[in-house]
């Protein structure tokens, strides 16, 4: 039976699960607002079956660590951690931006994911060389990294198409599945190369702090109330 790697990608509005063997990849994906936790495990079983195996044949588990939707990325990471512990196999985490390089055209490429609040998670490549690492920036800042002509891809490029085109860029819309496929292929290579790690070490990549402010300290009295 072929050895398989299972990949979970839940960072964006399109979630996906893929199984990769040395020669093939099977995927499931769906554009979804909520409910990823109900899809991942049945899909994992299905994609393994599609490649002629089952979860018992999995030799490594892969997850997109982010950046992306906070809640979404944690669903995929948690599933990956749980599956890897149960199967006693290593994990490997890819990031949701650089993984997309392999599915984009050659040349200068800006990868943008919609980060809401008028911002994008973005990174830039010149050929295979990463020239700007993943960052949480305004779309105008991201496109300013690029020299025209360039290609922009990812959900953020679609959302901010006008900003990209104003800078001389061309938006290339990606199909839903390739990002998960690319993650699974990258994970397959990493796991086979011995780069897998213990499941507990799999950490999210947020790029953005939680929105929380420390509470005001001090005992409530007439005086402190007057000062507030």
């Amino acid at each position: 039976m072929a050895e398989l790697v299972v990949a979970f990608d839940t960072c964006g509005p399109v979630i996906g699960v893929a199984a990769a063997s040395e020669t093939a990849v099977a995927t499931r994906s769906e554009r979804i607002r909520r409910g990823a936790e109900g899809r991942l495990i049945p899909w994992a079983q299905e994609v393994c079956a599609e490649l002629g195996g089952g979860l018992d044949d999995v030799v490594g588990v892969v997850a997109a660590r982010g950046p992306g939707a906070f809640t979404g990325l944690r669903v995929g990471l948690s599933a990956a951690i749980g599956l890897a512990i149960a199967l006693d196999v290593p994990v490997w985490g890819g990031d949701s931006l650089t993984t997309r390089r392999s599915t984009a055209p050659d040349g200068r490429v800006l990868i943008m994911l919609d980060a809401r609040k008028q911002r994008v998670y973005a990174c830039a490549f010149d050929g295979d060389q990463m020239v700007v690492p993943p960052a949480d920036v305004a779309p105008e800042i991201a496109v300013a990294w690029m020299k025209a002509p360039f290609t922009a891809t990812g959900e953020g490029a679609v959302v901010y198409r006008q900003v990209v085109e104003a800078q001389g860029g061309t938006v290339v819309e990606e199909a839903d599945a390739p990002a998960t496929e690319a993650l699974a292929r990258a994970g397959w290579s990493a796991i086979r190369a011995g780069d897998g790690r213990r499941p507990e070490s799999l950490e999210p990549l947020y790029l953005r702090p939680a929105d929380a402010k420390p509470s005001r300290r001090g005992r409530l009295t007439r005086e402190t109330k007057r000062r507030s």
Partner: peptide, 20 residues
Amino acid sequence: LIGAVLVGFSAAKALAAGWG
């Protein structure tokens, strides 16, 4: 808290599936 519940819930289902 839904974001909190999802972590344990997702891990648990994967553990159950992995062990069968």
